[in-house]
């Protein structure tokens, strides 16, 4: 199989702008993307620079982007990439703006945010224990697969919010926070939840795009952990009353009242006095028949069923 590789080249010490090398290569379908990186270095240009170590999908060093898709080079088969993108593959670092040399990026931002959730067990450890500290399987299961993260950064650099909001901690840090908030031995659950509850940096800024779930080479489903953190924030009484929490809770009130959502009421409930800033937009929408007035608000049929279910199936209070 003949491929055309477009390879991102950049040296922060000498280059003002990056450029792309075009390389034609005969490739065995059994090769993985890391084989291509090796062959670029060995057969075309010895100065080509990339990180790699274990070649077993466990060290997390070789994360790059192929045609915009975050991937671990050692795990990704070339044949699958060709099936998705055709025979022209664009090889780039996970973050072009953080490139140091070719595929190598400065992951300082990733580690800073990772550290922000205190990625270690906070517990009073008896230095001379008399017996084992046994965790029942039912408790251990709550961690799910959260322990399998290899800090490769695939999810983090695939996240669109990370791109536009430099305070946002991102999916990898949240995933790690959950790894400890779900751990029965940990004593810092509330403290961690307070960190991820903060607007701007925390889970409320997640756009729910599922890019992290697609990107994770270990199939950990970071957004699933983000949802669980949202749930824990309410369960543990950490949630503060703000536009984001009221927005989540407002759905329940609106559903109980109408079955379907009352969009206007939800915005009012979420924003409080802040609702005034939506007035110009609301006027434009009103002119186009996009706003339903309270007296015309449609209701679901058999609304009494919905009201009853909200009463008997609610599990969380706020």
């Amino acid at each position: 199989m003949k491929l055309t590789l477009k390879v991102f080249r950049f040296n922060a010490e000498t280059d003002y702008l990056p450029h792309y090398d075009t390389i034609e290569m005969e490739v065995d379908p059994k090769e993985v993307v890391l084989d291509l990186l090796n062959r670029i270095k060995w057969e075309h240009d010895g100065s080509f620079t990339y990180r790699r170590s274990c070649r077993h999908g466990i060290c997390g060093s070789c994360a790059i982007k192929v045609n915009g898709r975050s991937t671990l080079a050692c795990k990704e088969r070339v044949v699958d990439m060709v099936e998705t993108f055709g025979t022209e593959l664009i090889l780039e670092p996970v973050s072009k703006k953080r490139a140091v040399k070719d595929m190598v990026v400065d992951k300082a931002d990733f580690w800073k945010k990772y550290d922000a959730v205190k990625p270690w067990l906070v517990a009073e450890i008896d230095e001379h224990p008399q017996m084992e500290n046994i965790i029942p399987p039912s408790e251990a299961e709550k961690l799910e697969d959260a322990d399998y993260c290899i800090q490769c950064g695939c999810c983090y650099y695939a996240c669109p919010v990370v791109e536009v909001n430099e305070d946002y901690l991102g999916p990898a840090a949240f995933e790690k926070a959950y790894r400890f908030t779900a751990d029965v031995r940990d004593h810092a659950k509330k403290e961690r939840l307070e960190i991820v509850d903060q607007l701007g940096q925390g889970v409320w800024d997640c756009v729910k795009c599922y890019e992290c779930a697609e990107a994770c080479p270990k199939h950990i489903d970071p957004i699933g952990k983000i949802t669980k953190l949202h749930n824990q924030i309410f369960e543990e009484g950490v949630a503060k009353s703000n536009v984001a929490t009221r927005h989540a809770v407002g759905f329940k009130h609106s559903i109980k009242k109408h079955g379907i959502l009352d969009e206007g009421e939800l915005v009012l409930y979420s924003e409080g006095f802040g609702v005034f800033k939506h007035i110009p937009e609301a006027l434009e929408m009103f002119k186009k028949g996009k706003i339903v007035m309270p007296w015309n608000m449609p209701k679901s049929k058999n609304l009494d069923e919905i009201k009853k279910l909200v009463d008997i199936a609610s599990t969380v209070k706020f």
Partner: peptide, 12 residues
Amino acid sequence: SCCGASHLQDFD
């Protein structure tokens, strides 16, 4: 009724 739009899912 409303599907919860992924926000009710965050709460309950």
